[in-house]
């Protein structure tokens, strides 16, 4: 069975924001505009979070690109009253928009703030709607949405592999964030395949996950900077 996971090498990441923008374009995230942004209603499926340590001239800052961590033990799934969010067989935490009632319990339960609420019908002024990616549905207003590890790309890659009469190989699937990264800091693949790049990186001594003590078992691994 496939278990999708991601590794983000913080030693390579420069915080350029390419992943964030690529995610917007791939997944049809509409901008909310100046007025709503001021009310903290702008949303991104993948954010760059600064982490500050030390102070004064010894201060250290690093940026953590943060998609949904696709927890193996996701707190958001447990609290959903209508089973709109679920853990798929391949380890991706899915969101069924037509079921979601917008109660946002899942957002409250997520320790990583990975889920976002769609306050408005997505809008693309003027001709902008022409650039919508036909592979990803736009979400109606009033539902919670989140990073899907670009599952549409997984489906496409699987179809292509099937058409070519072969198994899916390591490296066949690249989410938009990983594809756009100029530093090649993001690696995606099957954690259950011991030979895959991702499973090797997940075993690296530099690998860590956020809040492992919570028992959520995220499938996104960070690789710490080298000293």
């Amino acid at each position: 069975m496939t278990r999708w996971g991601m590794a983000i090498d913080l030693d390579r990441c420069t915080g350029c924001g390419a992943c964030m923008a690529a995610c917007h374009q791939e997944n049809n995230l509409a901008a909310v505009g100046a007025e709503q942004a001021e009310k903290s209603r702008s949303f991104h499926w993948l954010r760059l979070l600064p982490e500050v340590s030390g102070s004064g001239s010894e201060v250290k800052v690093r940026y953590l690109p943060q998609p949904c961590f696709q927890c193996h033990n996701p707190p958001c799934v447990k609290v959903c009253p209508v089973h709109a969010t679920y853990l798929s067989e391949e380890g991706i935490v899915g969101q069924i928009y037509s079921r979601c009632i917008g109660c946002r319990y899942c957002m409250a339960a997520c320790p990583y703030n990975a889920k976002v609420f769609n306050w408005y019908e997505p809008e693309w002024p003027g001709e902008l709607k022409q650039k919508v990616n036909p592979d990803v549905s736009t979400r109606p207003k009033g539902v919670v949405e989140k990073c899907t590890f670009c599952h549409q790309r997984i489906l496409t890659a699987r179809e292509e592999a099937r058409a070519a009469g072969r198994e899916l190989r390591d490296g066949d699937v690249t989410p938009a964030c990983a594809e756009s990264c100029p530093a090649q800091a993001i690696v995606f693949g099957d954690l259950d395949d011991p030979a895959s790049r991702i499973s090797r990186l997940a075993r690296s001594p530099r690998a860590f996950r956020l809040y492992e003590d919570l028992g959520t078992e995220p499938k996104v691994y960070y690789l710490a900077e080298k000293e």
């Binding site: 390419a18 923008a21 756009s180 530093a183």
Partner: peptide
């Protein structure tokens, strides 16, 4: 030059193409 990477502004190329105004 970029070997596959693309910055946020480059990603927005289509939004510039279809930009309002």
């Amino acid at each position: 030059l970029n070997r596959g990477g693309l910055c946020p502004v480059g990603q927005a190329g289509l939004e510039v193409l279809y930009a309002p105004d």
